[in-house]
Structure formats: C-alpha cells, structure tokens
C-alpha cells in the first residue's frame, strides 16, 4: 500500500503518461464529504479484457515487464478506495484513452493523508515526453490549475534541477494560496 493519496495519484498518473498520451488531465478535489481524484488521458487505451486484468495484482503489461507477473498500481488504489468509504471506477477505449476515478471518505479514519501534492504534481510535470498535463486542484470551492505547457513556456525546460525547483516554488505558491483562503489566516 502507498502511504498517501498523492502517492496513489503519482502511480496511476504514470500509467497515463506512459500510455503515449499527448493530453493527461488530473483533478484533485476536496469536497464536503469526499476527496475525489480523477486521471484521464487520450493514450492508447485498453480493451475490456485488459481493463479487467489490470485490476488483478497478478497481471502486468507484458510489454513493460516481460518476466514479471505482478502489477500493483491499480489494485493498490482499488483496495484503498474501497476500504476508505470510497469508490473506484475505470473506463477505457482502445485508441481513445482511459479515465480512472476514485473517491475517499474525507473524514474516514482509514483515508490516507493527502501527502505532498505540490511535489507530486511537480514531479509529474517533469517526466520525459511531449505530453500536455493539466492539473486542476480544488479545496472547498477554492481552485487553481497548472498546465505543463505554461511551465515549459515560462521556464524553457523542465528537466534540470533548477527548473524543476522553480516549478515547485510556483505550484507551491498556488497551493498555499488556496489553503490560506480556506483557513483565512493572516
């Protein structure tokens, strides 16, 4: 199991980025009663059989890990959501893309901590490839969004320690802003 919701997000978002997507959208929302995470992409997609197998911990993409018989990404997430008063759903279509949605009870004692949302998003922005990634975050009605293309335009690149650090500072300022607006602290 992963330690935090951010870790679950990182894990499934990697699937999207690796699925030859050129557009990945992540929403991470805290509503009154639930926390909802949705990851959708326009990558290669899966057929019905593969979608079913991907939820089995003893299956992995044979192209990715030819000699292995384990793939824990989605099974971890399903187990976590289902034990935290939440839900899990996945829909996918070959050549069209995949959408994973999960929810967690916000006050459920078993729901993992949010974890490092800022670091997670920054790291996802800094993966290899020419994909667009849009991250939408909301907290009790306060909202911000970040696009990878905007960061690339401002920074020139997202592969060096210097640029990744600046991207992190930027995302952190947006996250702190909604936290601040929520608490109303000085």
């Amino acid at each position: 199991m992963h330690y935090s919701l951010s870790d679950y997000l990182a894990d499934i978002a990697h699937n999207s980025i690796e699925a030859k997507s050129n557009y990945v959208k992540i929403t991470f929302c805290e509503f009154d009663k639930i926390i909802e995470i949705v990851v959708s992409d326009n990558g290669c997609g899966m057929d019905e059989e593969t979608v079913r197998k991907a939820q089995d911990p003893f299956y992995t993409d044979p192209r990715k890990h030819a000699a292995r018989k384990a793939g824990f990404g989605l099974p971890f997430l399903i187990q976590a959501a289902e034990t935290c008063e939440g839900t899990f759903s996945i829909s996918s279509e070959m050549g069209v893309g995949t959408k994973v949605r999960c929810t967690f009870g916000r006050t459920c004692i078993d729901t993992p901590p949010l974890g490092e949302i800022v670091s997670t998003v920054t790291a996802l922005m800094a993966m290899d490839g020419g994909y667009e990634l849009e991250f939408v975050r909301s907290l009790d009605g306060e909202e911000y969004s970040v696009k990878r293309s905007e960061l690339l335009e401002a920074l020139g690149e997202l592969e060096t320690a210097g640029s990744i650090n600046m991207a992190r500072i930027y995302v952190n300022s947006l996250e702190e802003n909604i936290q601040h607006n929520k608490t109303g602290e000085a």
Binding site: A154, G156, S163, Y170, S173, L174, E176, N177
Partner: peptide
C-alpha cells in the same frame, strides 16, 4: 504570495 506565470518567468 500567489505567483503568476510572469513571476515564474522573471525568476527563471
């Protein structure tokens, strides 16, 4: 405070 993309570019 909250940064803008222009702030980010200036930082860079």
């Amino acid at each position: 405070g909250k940064m803008t993309l222009a702030d980010l570019k200036a930082m860079r």
